[in-house]
């Protein structure tokens, strides 16, 4: 969830900054207290967030190893040359892209559907909302093990498919279905999270707008297109960015279910980086992968933000 919530910068940042008056210089003592209260968080963030970010940028150009008696040496672009010449990297990049391109629209659309279903004054709404949300509070480690069992050749899903006369594949051991199986499971796990976010967006839309639309004779679909959808613009940006970042960060499912296989068909950027930087201890090379990953996240966030920007000039 830490990654899922990371996209706030895109939606909340300016608003937070805009709403702030330019600070007047205040008495030295108050400023001292302010810095003292800020200090614990500031120091921790400096050491465990800012420095690692800078390290990602710099270690990528060195031959640093996780455990090594000699200091890291600058080796220029050698890590990147090696990376761009590696088929494992291109496979992983492609898989990461496919995962994101499929899961972003599917998961956000289904989550919106769920939100609309539970955003009604019907008996039991709270119950439904709770059940749809259950997978979100189940850890991805548990979900991965459970679905690994369900996806077996003789597992639960194929047993159910057999009931309707379909012979299911060996989901996770077939290069054609493994990534798809992981996408399906990941969407199942996280959908409730985005349902709640859509729901909070739906509830910011004034009921008056729906009434006005009804008076104008709008039907359900027209109301959705002309009232609901435009009213969800902010929520949409937030959801698109959070799902995309979470998709790019795909790791746990791969580590537990497939280890990148079969035939690299489920290897992802983060999985490859962990294998390189942790198992093989090549920190420099793994940092180069992390840097590519970071640039990718940044680029996608900027593009999405541009595409979903304010169309009209506001005030």
């Amino acid at each position: 969830m830490s990654t899922a919530t990371a996209a706030l910068a895109a939606t909340g940042q300016e608003a937070a900054l805009r709403g702030r008056k330019r600070p007047r210089r205040s008495s030295g003592r108050a400023a001292g207290t302010a810095w003292a209260m800020l200090a614990p968080a500031a120091v921790l963030m400096l050491v465990f967030l800012i420095v690692p970010i800078i390290l990602t940028l710099s270690l990528a150009f060195t031959d640093a190893r996780l455990i090594s008696p000699r200091p890291a040496e600058f080796i220029g672009l050698a890590n990147f040359t090696r990376l761009f010449g590696s088929s494992a990297f291109w496979h992983s990049l492609l898989n990461t892209m496919i995962f994101a391109v499929v899961i972003v629209p599917v998961q956000s659309a289904c989550a919106l559907g769920l939100a609309v279903l539970v955003n009604a004054k019907v008996r039991g709404t709270n119950f439904f909302r709770t059940v749809y949300f259950l997978p979100v509070v189940t850890s991805m480690v548990v979900v991965s093990m459970l679905w690994m069992f369900m996806y077996q050749q003789n597992g639960l899903i194929n047993a159910l498919l057999a009931k309707v006369g379909i012979t299911g594949p060996d989901w996770l051991n077939d290069p054609n279905t493994a990534l798809f199986a992981i996408i399906l499971m990941s969407a199942w796990q996280a959908m409730g999270f985005h349902m709640v976010i859509w729901l909070s967006g739906l509830q910011t839309i004034s009921a008056d707008l729906y009434e006005a639309a009804s008076l104008d004779g709008a039907g359900g679909w027209q109301k959705f297109v002309h009232v609901t959808w435009p009213g969800l613009r902010q929520t949409r940006t937030f959801i698109l960015i959070t799902i995309t970042i979470a998709a790019f960060s795909l790791f746990t499912q791969i580590q537990i279910m497939t280890q990148g296989g079969p035939l690299d068909s489920t290897s992802t950027l983060v999985f490859l980086a962990v294998r390189t930087g942790f198992a093989q201890q090549q920190t420099g090379y793994a940092s180069a992968m992390s840097l590519v990953f970071f640039v990718l996240v940044l680029a996608v966030s900027l593009v999405q933000r541009y595409l979903t920007r304010d169309k009209e000039v506001t005030r």
């Binding site: 706030l8 910068a9 940042q13 963030m45 800012i50 970010i53 960060s249 962990v274 940092s287 990953f293």
Partner: peptide
């Protein structure tokens, strides 16, 4: 103040996974 707030908010975009390996080394 404004700079500190801006830096903190800017870091929200960085997923933990991008810096996990450099952090491990660090």
């Amino acid at each position: 103040q404004k700079i500190v707030l801006g830096v903190i908010l800017a870091t929200l975009i960085v997923p933990f996974e991008t810096m996990a390996l450099p952090l491990l080394w660090w």
